[in-house]
């Protein structure tokens, strides 16, 4: 159509890249379509479900997350910790010289926000604690309950600018619960006969299944996970809000340029 020759209209590098991507896609599709057909990988979930009664945890997902795959959970919590650390470095790095962030945000919070948060805060805390403590009985657990508690504190920080989370105290809480998690794992390693990390060393009779005090070490570990996740997510929210408040306190430099 145009006078430009074909080799100028089609870049060879792009064409090669597209071909490579297509070949990779086809190869991976060939692998993925075979996956699970041999019955080997499909039976893992069924095997865990069959053995679920031995953990005496009514919620089978929890017994996988905390007991059978507890080490993975430790890794996930560590990833979250690293994310919170990175966000803290990014957002809380430069403190203003006067150190004054109190009352920094210009406009006071809306009356409806204040009233609504006053109503919601205790309910959210109660819901979060319930979700954490009933992790081995009903859906939910440490991660979900921890995030719910952190959300409650975030709303509180929005409604009340004078309310601040003390970073030192949050860090202490977070590290104590993290160390408690590892300590539980090591105790399981030493006390249980099979010597497994995070082994269930407390008595967990199957007859008690479904009660609040059952499943041995699982509710303790999930509570520690809940405290740790709540502290980390609340620290992330706190970092972002403080940075936000500090920026709005600064004189708008960009606005004068425009």
């Amino acid at each position: 159509m145009t006078g430009v020759p074909l080799r100028k209209r089609v870049s060879v590098k792009t064409l090669l890249l597209v071909l490579l991507c297509g070949w990779l896609f086809a190869a991976l599709l060939g692998v993925l379509l075979q996956f699970g057909l041999d019955g080997q990988s499909a039976s893992v979930g069924d095997a865990l479900l069959e053995r679920n009664a031995e953990t005496a945890s009514a919620n089978a997902v929890t017994s996988v997350v905390v007991s059978y795959r507890g080490f993975d959970t430790l890794g996930e919590v560590t990833v979250l910790f690293l994310a919170a650390t990175g966000i803290g470095l990014l957002f809380g790095g430069r403190r203003p010289a006067d150190g004054g962030i109190l009352g920094a945000s210009g406009t006071p919070p809306n009356e409806m926000v204040v009233t609504g948060v006053r109503l919601l805060f205790p309910i959210l805390i109660l819901l979060g604690v319930y979700v954490v403590l009933h992790g081995h009985l009903s859906p939910g657990g440490g991660f979900q309950g921890g995030v719910i508690i952190a959300t409650a504190f975030f709303l509180r920080m929005l409604a009340d600018p004078a309310f601040r989370l003390e970073h030192g105290r949050i860090g202490l809480l977070e590290s104590l619960s993290g160390s408690g998690f590892v300590l539980m794992g090591l105790l399981g390693l030493t006390l249980v006969g099979t010597a497994t990390f995070l082994g269930n060393f407390l008595p967990h009779p199957v007859a008690e299944m479904g009660r609040l005090l059952s499943a041995g070490v699982i509710p303790i570990i999930y509570s520690l996970v809940g405290v740790k996740v709540g502290a980390e997510v609340a620290a992330i929210f706190g970092d972002m809000l403080e940075r936000d408040a500090r920026q709005s306190a600064d004189p708008p430099v960009e606005a004068s340029d425009a």
Binding site: N59, V131, P139, Q144, V147, I148, T151, M240, D244, Q247
Partner: peptide
């Protein structure tokens, strides 16, 4: 239901809060 609860806590609430703070800035 476990994943639903996680999605409700993180997807609906927490990530929206982070994005809202971005919008505010």
């Amino acid at each position: 239901p476990d994943v639903a609860l996680t999605e409700a806590a993180i997807g609906v609430a927490a990530s929206s809060f982070v994005l809202l703070m971005g919008v505010r800035q």
